[in-house]
């Protein structure tokens, strides 16, 4: 006959292990997540899992002050998700929009550089002109 206490200990350990696994899976989604809303959703899920962790640790240690920590963490997670949603709305662009804008800017700059080189075939101006333009386009691509 297994004692109730040992069943309980095993349940706590099992819960902690499963929660750790789901934490790792969620972090993979946050790192991989193709878009910003995916990452925000992952952070929301991370907060939910952390609340679960706090509940399990509160049961395991019997230190019931952890309940207040869980409630405060839930409040912070809610406010963070709302603020991020407002940020997505006020940014007003998807990742695809930003990429295509950067590509358009780069090709426009390339066209401009080519036109400038054709208009002034002088060696000094032709050598100097594409330099800053190329630097500008690469700077934009870094911003993506």
């Amino acid at each position: 006959m297994i004692s109730v206490a040992s069943i309980f200990d095993h349940a706590v350990t099992l819960a902690l292990a499963i929660l750790s696994l789901s934490f790792l899976v969620t972090i993979y989604r946050i790192v991989k997540g193709p878009t910003l809303p995916d990452r925000i959703l992952g952070l929301d899920m991370l907060v939910a899992i952390a609340i679960g962790f706090i509940a399990v640790i509160g049961i395991k240690t019997g230190y019931t002050l952890y309940v207040d920590v869980a409630i405060a963490l839930g409040l912070v997670g809610f406010l963070a998700t709302v603020a991020f949603a407002r940020f997505v709305l006020s940014r007003g662009k998807t990742e695809d929009d930003i990429l295509s804008e950067a590509r358009e800017a780069a090709s426009a700059a390339r066209r401009q550089a080519k036109a400038a080189a054709k208009a002034r075939p002088g060696s000094a101006a032709g050598g100097m002109d594409p330099g800053p333009v190329a630097g500008k386009t690469s700077g934009r691509q870094d911003n993506e």
Binding site: I7, A15, I18, L21, G52, A55, I59
Partner: peptide
């Protein structure tokens, strides 16, 4: 003992739900 067992069951079921949610996220 019954209370302890029920709370252990809720813990395992709750963590299982969290795992299912994160697999869905993946």
């Amino acid at each position: 003992e019954l209370v302890t067992l029920v709370s252990a069951a809720f813990l395992v079921i709750g963590s299982f739900f969290a795992l299912v949610a994160s697999i869905g996220l993946l």
